[in-house]
Amino acid sequence: MSTTADILETAETTVCQPPSRWQVIADRTFRTACHTFAWVTVIGIVFIVARIILAGVPAMREYGPGFLTGTTWDPNKDAYGILPEIWGTLYSSILSLIIGTAFGVAAAIFLSEGYLGEFVFGALRVFNLHFHPFWTHLPQRLEDLLRNLIELLAAIPSVVYGLWGIFVVVPAIRPVCNWLHLKMGWFALFSTDLSGPGMLPAVLVLSIMILPTITAISRDALTSVPPKLRMAAYGLGATRWETIFAVILPTASRGVFGGVVLAFGRALGETMALAMLVGNSNRISVSLFSPANTLAALLANTFPEARPNEVAVLMYAALVLLAITLIVNILGAVILQQTSKSQQGAH
């Protein structure tokens, strides 16, 4: 007859023991380390933002708000103004957002509706292969492949897009643009000719770069619409697109909008493709073919050879860019957060 006490007595005492002193110390150290690094992350980011703000303050005092409305950038005369850059940043971002949203949301609908899978399934059925063990996974595989391909668009470094823009996009669109200028030069958007780099190639490349962001987030929002709603719409006799326009897009609209705002933030801060394609010329023009400049491109092109006084001014420009992007990004994050909350209620 063995009792609990006997078992405890016979058990090896080395198995059951309180943590050794070394283990206690290691535990404390590790926990403190985790805590410290969490603080390091927060303080680091506060430090980064504060460093940029502080660096911009001297120039801010010297040039004041006139810096934001000035239109010349001439280090020799010590005259600095970034209105053309602010205009260029907003204009290029908004234009590319329009193109990027149209194509990005279209791709998101294409992916979330499973068009490719349906098409492949239909094609397989023609050959009566749709339940064949080898072919049956093909529609799903191709859907995944397509999704990954669109995500690959985001993986290509922006400097490579810039290179591609210079040698592919600009030569490809130049004849069309110049023809448009010749025939429809009275129209404000076509009022100059495209001599090389300019707003339109920059906008086209930029919209390709923000498309994956919009597609990924919109697709998530579209697929998380409860299937019940879709079934109910079909049950009432709606066609597929009546369902999409009346039920699915309105339900997912906040998620899509959050994605668009985040993409806007990305477009505002995008540097390389713009620095290579936008033309770096200080002018305010609504023409799509005119060279322009953006805040990020100004920093990229001027900083490496800037004199100390100019660096201080560039820090001010960086501060303006920081303010614009922070506002847009925080707005996007808040919208997405609220979306996920309201989606939880819908299920």
């Binding site: 805590h35 969490a38 603080w39 992350t41 927060v42 980011i45 506060v46 980064i48 460093r51 940029i52 660096a55 985040l262 933030g265 990305r266 505002l268 801060g269 995008e270 540097t271 990020a296 920093l299 990229a300 900083f303 560039l314 820090m315 960086a318 860019l321 920081l322 992007t325 922070l326 847009v328 990004n329 925080i330 996007g332 994050a333």
Partner: peptide, 27 residues
């Protein structure tokens, strides 16, 4: 603190890459 870290990380996700350069230049 956890909320602050998460917020900070999200801010960094949308941080313009050129500003990271501006910071490293200054610091």
């Amino acid at each position: 603190l956890a909320q602050a870290v998460r917020f900070a990380a999200k801010v960094l996700t949308g941080f313009p890459s050129i500003l990271a350069g501006v910071f490293a230049y200054g610091a």
